[in-house]
Simulated assay, not measured.
Amino acid sequence: MTASIPGSPGTPDSSDVVDRLLTFAYRGWIVSCGTQRIDGGLYRPVVFCRPDEPGEKDARLPVDTDNAAYASEAEALRHGEQQAMRWVHDRTGGQGEF
């Protein structure tokens, strides 16, 4: 049984996240990337990371750039995927492998 991440897709307080999700496993973490529609039809990535093994906390990643708005949902998802991989990589000690 896996615990849900507060504010993650599929939980009651995630109404701002668009239905399309990209979910993948990377270095022992389960990553879910979604998007949030913001002003002017732009999209912001919304990224959640859940450890595959107990011992680490679930995380909703913060916006990682000052201007994190993208013209398409696909572009925002792609950025969220890259952000998640960097975040996990930094926590798993994968120096020189990224």
Rank of each mutant, 00 (worst) to 15 (best):
M85N: 07
V31D: 03
D66T: 09
L22M: 11
A69F: 15
C49E: 03
V18K: 12
G7A: 00
S32T: 13
T92W: 03
S32M: 03
T11C: 02
R50E: 15
D16N: 10
G28D: 09
A71M: 10
C33F: 00
A76M: 03
Q82H: 10
G93H: 05
S14C: 07
G40Q: 08
V31G: 03
A3T: 13
M85Y: 11
A3C: 04
A59M: 08
I5P: 02
P6R: 05
G40M: 09
P62W: 03
V88M: 01
W29K: 00
E81F: 01
F98M: 10
Q83W: 06
Q83C: 06
F24D: 01
Q83R: 10
T23G: 04
T35Q: 03
R37F: 09
P54G: 05
D19W: 04
T92A: 09
T35R: 07
A71P: 15
G55Q: 00
M1T: 15
T65F: 07
R44D: 15
R60F: 04
V88I: 06
V88P: 04
Y43M: 04
P6K: 03
P9F: 10
E53K: 10
W29Q: 03
G41H: 09
D16A: 08
D19V: 01
T92F: 02
R44F: 12
P62Y: 00
W29T: 01
T65Q: 13
P45V: 08
L22W: 06
V63D: 15
A71G: 13
I5H: 02
R20T: 04
C49I: 10
D52M: 14
I30R: 13
P54D: 12
G55W: 04
R27M: 03
A74N: 05
E73I: 02
T92S: 05
D19E: 14
V47L: 02
A69Y: 15
P12D: 07
P9N: 08
V46D: 01
G34H: 05
P45W: 04
R20C: 05
N67F: 14
L42Y: 06
L21G: 00
D58I: 01
D58H: 12
I38C: 11
N67I: 15
G94A: 12
E75L: 14
M85S: 09
H89E: 13
E56V: 05
G55I: 01
G94N: 05
D19N: 07
I30G: 06
Q36M: 09
T23C: 07
R37V: 09
R27T: 03
G55S: 00
A68F: 06
H89G: 14
G80I: 00
G28S: 07
T92V: 14
T92R: 10
F24L: 11
R27L: 05
F98V: 11
G40F: 12
G28W: 04
I38L: 06
G28M: 05
G96H: 12
A3S: 07
P45N: 06
T35V: 05
E75N: 14
V88R: 00
V31I: 14
T23H: 02
D52A: 12
I30Y: 12
G94L: 06
V18E: 15
